[in-house]
Write a protein that binds this DNA or RNA. Structure first.
Lengths: 161, 161
DNA sequence: ATAATTAAGTCAATATGACTGACCTAAATA
DNA sequence: TATTTAGGTCAGTCATATTGACTTAATTAT
């Protein structure tokens, strides 16, 4: 950081404060994912399964291609996870109008797991929210959104249209 | 969610809104770590190396034990990563007063890498901050902190004493 | 002084999540 | 008809993490 920048930078932006934010992000993310991780572990699944279940639940009838573009992983990576979920009947696959495509949907079993996993994270957020000011929550959401890359903001927007 | 809870829950707390927050956390964390990941990839390191370098930089002369308690991984997991960092002279090890313990510090090379990696994340945060209101940043920090488990909040506090 | 605890390390096996690269099939589109 | 797109598969590799069983050396408690 140059001397000029130091002069122009308000106190709440010091490198030390930024480092605190980096740590807050690290610790909070770790704790945020720890709940679902425990449940998944018991049924021999991992975080990758959670993500697939989450986004299939979010967008029923989603194609493989769309799912890949949200997850930003290779189809080989998705393959193992998805096949397990299909084999164990959490997800059901059907053929689309375009017969090259496949549509993924949650089964009842899949919905139940999705609900269970999401509820844990929802509870954590609700606990935080009930002790916080609405302005703080809105600040939190705004900053989180601004932290996302432009192209992924678009993806987020599409996902929530 | 019970009917009573629905009545008591303000609009900004709807399940749909909470799910948006879950997604914001997922997307923002992924993009937040992507910058350092790229640099680390080029020198055959991973995210685990980043974390070790970061916290050794934060707490010079840290012991293995303390580092493990921050990272919350097993010593077998740390072992491989730390040995690589020592072998490639990013970290230097010395014996503590208690001769059972070891103290870890960054070398000049280690500090340079730490700086490089942290700068990427710092830049992202600064970019967000310069277009945001101070209240939003403070809300962001408050909520992040509240999202952390009690015992890890204590760890965060200690780390920033 | 001896016993117990603590800090650190090591060996081995395993699981998960991800990757690259090279192919293949079938359907849709140019 | 040729090309592109959607999806799948085989093989190999790497990174991160785990459990479990042991070892060594130093410190602390009895």
């Amino acid at each position: 950081m140059t001397d000029l920048n130091k002069l122009l930078t308000p106190l709440f932006l010091s490198d030390k404060e930024i480092r605190k934010i980096i740590e807050l992000i690290f610790f909070s993310y770790r704790d945020f994912t720890s709940g679902p991780d425990e449940i998944l572990y018991k049924i021999n699944f991992g975080r990758a399964h959670h993500r697939v279940i989450y986004f299939v639940g979010k967008r029923e009838q989603i194609t493989i291609r769309n799912l890949l573009s949200i997850l930003q992983i290779t189809k080989q990576s998705l393959s193992r996870v998805l096949n397990q979920l299909v084999k164990e009947k959490y997800i059901i696959v059907s053929t689309g109008n375009d017969k090259r495509t496949k549509n993924l949907s949650l089964t009842k079993k899949g919905m139940e797991l999705e609900e269970k996993l999401t509820t844990i994270q929802t509870k954590r957020i609700r606990n935080v929210i009930k002790n916080a000011k609405e302005d703080d929550i809105n600040g939190f959401k705004k900053i989180l959104y601004a932290m996302i890359d432009k192209n992924n903001q678009i993806q987020f927007d599409k996902l929530n249209m």
